[in-house]
Amino acid sequence: MHNFGDRLKAEREKKKQDNTYWTQQYVADKLGVARSTYTAYERGTKQPSLETLKKIADLLDTTTDFLLGRDNTSPNTSNISYAAKDGASSRTKEDDEEMTEKFRQFLEWQREVKRREGE
């Protein structure tokens, strides 16, 4: 998986494994672009603007560096799903949502630290 389109599709499909609403149409709607435009991103026939690239990375819980092939490690929250299953039978849906939100906040903090280091 070397190009942007392949990485983009793989990240969306990881999300779709857990939640079937992660279709191309769903992502396109969230980004404010036509589905055909988003499909072209995944196929590699069109490149998003920098602003759209940032939105894509945030939406998919990954980094622009990963999507662009500058970093081979995706911080996608689905990567922790197996670790998070320990004790899952005693957790409520609200507990899971809270844990996901806290992890999302951690990822945002981590991105901010990286951004500041780059200044």
Results as ranks from 00 to 15, higher is better:
residue 42 E to S: 06
residue 41 Y to F: 12
residue 59 L to S: 04
residue 27 V to S: 10
residue 25 Q to I: 04
residue 61 D to Y: 10
residue 88 A to I: 03
residue 89 S to I: 09
residue 5 G to P: 13
residue 11 E to M: 05
residue 87 G to W: 01
residue 11 E to Q: 14
residue 28 A to K: 05
residue 102 K to S: 11
residue 3 N to A: 01
residue 20 T to R: 14
residue 27 V to R: 02
residue 27 V to T: 03
residue 112 E to M: 09
residue 58 D to K: 10
residue 104 R to V: 06
residue 44 G to V: 02
residue 113 V to H: 03
residue 55 K to Q: 10
residue 19 N to Y: 03
residue 48 P to L: 00
residue 15 K to T: 01
residue 90 S to N: 10
residue 9 K to R: 15
residue 70 R to W: 13
residue 39 T to L: 12
residue 2 H to K: 14
residue 51 E to V: 09
residue 1 M to G: 15
residue 87 G to Q: 06
residue 71 D to C: 12
residue 95 D to V: 01
residue 114 K to Y: 04
residue 55 K to F: 00
residue 37 T to S: 14
residue 26 Y to A: 13
residue 83 A to R: 13
residue 21 Y to I: 14
residue 34 A to R: 12
residue 66 F to R: 04
residue 74 S to A: 10
residue 91 R to C: 11
residue 90 S to P: 00
residue 40 A to K: 14
residue 10 A to P: 05
residue 94 E to N: 11
residue 107 L to E: 04
residue 61 D to V: 10
residue 38 Y to V: 03
residue 108 E to N: 11
residue 59 L to A: 03
residue 38 Y to I: 00
residue 83 A to C: 05
residue 42 E to N: 07
residue 47 Q to L: 13
residue 6 D to C: 01
residue 33 V to Q: 01
residue 56 I to G: 08
residue 90 S to E: 11
residue 14 K to S: 07
residue 65 D to N: 07
residue 48 P to A: 00
residue 96 D to F: 08
residue 38 Y to Q: 09
residue 8 L to T: 01
residue 60 L to C: 11
residue 28 A to V: 01
residue 18 D to S: 15
residue 107 L to F: 02
residue 66 F to A: 07
residue 33 V to A: 03
residue 64 T to S: 10
residue 68 L to I: 04
residue 24 Q to G: 12
residue 36 S to M: 09
residue 25 Q to Y: 02
residue 101 E to P: 08
residue 65 D to P: 06
residue 2 H to E: 07
residue 3 N to D: 15
residue 52 T to K: 15
residue 31 L to T: 06
residue 63 T to G: 10
residue 16 K to S: 10
residue 89 S to W: 11
residue 92 T to C: 08
residue 41 Y to M: 02
residue 51 E to K: 14
residue 110 Q to S: 15
residue 112 E to H: 09
residue 78 S to A: 13
residue 69 G to Y: 00
residue 46 K to L: 06
residue 84 A to T: 08
residue 48 P to K: 01
residue 102 K to G: 12
residue 30 K to P: 08
residue 80 I to G: 09
residue 60 L to R: 04
residue 15 K to C: 12
residue 60 L to W: 01
residue 15 K to L: 15
residue 22 W to F: 12
residue 39 T to Q: 13
residue 8 L to C: 06
residue 92 T to I: 04
residue 40 A to H: 09
residue 9 K to Y: 05
residue 50 L to A: 14
residue 97 E to W: 01
residue 97 E to R: 15
residue 13 E to H: 12
residue 26 Y to G: 09
residue 8 L to Y: 04
residue 99 M to R: 11
residue 5 G to Q: 02
residue 31 L to D: 05
residue 41 Y to R: 05
residue 67 L to V: 01
residue 56 I to Y: 03
residue 31 L to C: 09
residue 118 G to Y: 00
residue 112 E to R: 05
residue 52 T to D: 08
residue 83 A to P: 02
